[in-house]
Design a protein around this nucleic acid. Structure first.
Lengths: 341, 341
DNA sequence: CATAAAACTAAAATCGGTTTCACACAGATA
DNA sequence: TATCTGTGTGAAACCGATTTTAGTTTTATG
């Protein structure tokens, strides 16, 4: 591998001049510039990024910290972010926090020791206080409420999405709609719960039916039994995320309860798996890929504009109607409700 | 951030001595060692990995190159690799080749420019010739035949797995078993095809029914129509991978053909989604997570033992029997076959 | 006891870039 | 003509570690 000094020697100039050409910065005569570029091309020289990093305190690398890349939400996010990173000349570091016990903050240390230029956080496992200390590390936080200064937050309008989901269930004739809400330390779960509550409150004849869930497939499946025992006449389930909705679907299937005929099911997230279930799952789609892409783009912007300040971006969700909420005659309800929406 | 010279000054020694302590290498008196360690601890000093990298030509980073992290096979692989990397003090770079046009080799350039210590290749999009040129980059190649010197190859016994799958279909009474084979530039697809052929050949009363597929869900779905037109009496489908099997399942479902009653379906890979379909999908499970983990471990071993030479690891698959191949009375077959598996 | 070997240490060189600084020279301005 | 400004350049310092070199002090050996 040739170095900048090799190039300099071969072009009959100093390393400083080559560096100026490389970075397109400072005065260089057109004549020397051309000569140097030719030599660079001929030698196939490429600057060593580590040396450059040491000098500039930069690594042209950004990191994405997720809970668990095997959670189907994250690969799409990661892909969007990786692609945007790559297109802007950045490498893409991935970290999973799940199952790392208390070592998660090691990821944060990396930021300093390896001059990682910025980080996208999509995990609740990273201590928010430690995050706050990283004042001058550009940061983008996904799907989380936070009060971190100098960070960009990207999320969807979960409240609105949840209202849309609930209204949709109402619109296909459901009148006993349960919501399986996610862990309440997660602000998205909270917002979705609030959205559900709002619609129930504002629609006559409905009342809240709530069970807690843990955002996993098994968790979703487990709530079903409870739910049916307490409320045998429910006709719709709005799960706080797709994974739970998938669990619900599986369980209902095992119990020979027909979806959507007996109970309609709606999820939230728009993960790819919702197209694979039988019946296919209606869901509130988040622009996951776009969120990843946007996160990387915003992060890079912040890297180039330090101390840009706080920013919050809220994207729209989209109701994706599929088989699991197909409109069917709901004979029981017909008697007691006359509401035609 | 404090530097090694800060530590040195504070401990009343030279930077060289601190470095010796840091790397546990060379002579250092017990007395000074303790003093230095105390200072390091008190100052919260951590060595700058970029500076270290420049000096040692190392980055304590390894890369995983996959086709597409949103392909459900890869997240589990990535997680296994990331975890093993992390536990050994390595950071984990991810690259997707799909949709990168001809820029894939840029990933390879990174290896040099950023002193990436080693790379795990799980993509056919990287030019094998370029890979071969990277003679002194430790490499682990997954799921691919290759003749790269000084690389470790990890794969499962696809031939055996395919035989197991085919035999399993035979054992539940299938007698017209089709195989949807994957793209033949992919050696795993080839081996699976061979395994299928071997069983067909060795079992009396069976004959080959083959259709090409592209390893995607849609691709799998599309072959079904063809298959049924040409061979309306098939009673079993062995798809070359799970994604195609899922597509097949969807299509059969749309056509109101019952699985497993009318046609049994078996996949290959063991991706998580196979547990979510309805019916759940029988598959040949690969130890995906373990493969990722092993890949990282082997890679790190190679980083520490340069020029270790070629190595091939073949792991076993496991038949995971699920609903899609439940044994049922196959009335048609009963007449024409008396074979009890 | 002389001397070789081992233990220990610091100064300086190095890794491969960037950046500062000093300086030279041209043309513009007064 | 003297001075200022803008252009162009290279030597040297720097980023923060490791490693080599050379030298000193101990310890072991014959």
């Amino acid at each position: 591998m040739s170095t900048i000094r090799d190039v300099a020697k071969s072009a009959g100039v100093s390393a400083a001049t080559v560096s100026r050409v490389l970075n397109n910065k400072g005065y260089v005569s057109e004549e020397k510039k051309e000569k140097i570029e030719k030599v660079i091309h001929d030698m196939g020289y490429e600057p060593n990024q580590i040396a450059r990093g040491l000098a500039k305190k930069t690594s042209k690398t950004l990191a994405l910290i997720v809970t668990d890349i095997t959670n189907p939400f994250f690969p799409e996010l990661a892909k969007g972010a990786e692609k945007a990173a790559y297109l802007n000349g950045y490498s893409f570091l991935l970290g999973n926090t799940k199952g790392m016990d208390n070592h998660n903050d090691d990821y944060v240390k990396l930021l300093k020791n390896k001059y990682i230029d910025g980080v996208i956080i999509a995990s609740h496992d990273i201590d928010i206080e430690i995050l706050k200390e990283q004042e001058n590390t550009p940061m983008v936080v996904l799907e989380m409420d936070n009060d971190i200064e100098n960070a960009c937050t990207i999320k969807v309008d979960n409240y609105d999405g949840a209202m849309t989901a609930t209204r949709h269930l109402v619109s296909i004739g459901c009148r006993k709609i349960a919501h399986i809400y996610g862990p309440q330390y997660d602000s998205t779960a909270k917002e979705r719960l609030e959205g559900y509550k709002a619609v129930i409150r504002d629609t006559s004849g409905l009342s809240e039916i709530l069970v807690p869930g843990d955002f996993t497939i098994n968790g979703g499946a487990e709530t079903v039994q409870n739910l049916l025992t307490q409320y045998p006449d429910i006709d719709g389930i709005f799960a706080g995320n797709d994974l739970m909705a998938i669990g619900v679907l599986k369980k209902l299937n095992q119990l020979k309860i027909k979806v959507p005929e007996d109970i309609a099911v709606c999820g939230f997230d728009g993960i790819f798996m919702t197209q694979v279930t039988n019946p296919e799952l209606t869901t509130i789609e988040q622009p996951i890929y776009r969120m990843g892409e946007l996160a990387a783009e915003k992060l890079i912007f912040r890297i180039n504009h330090p101390f840009y300040g706080k920013e919050s971006i809220e994207l729209k969700t989209k109701l994706q109607i599929r088989e699991s909420t197909r409109k069917v005659n709901r004979s029981d309800q017909k008697k007691s409700f006359s509401d035609g929406d």
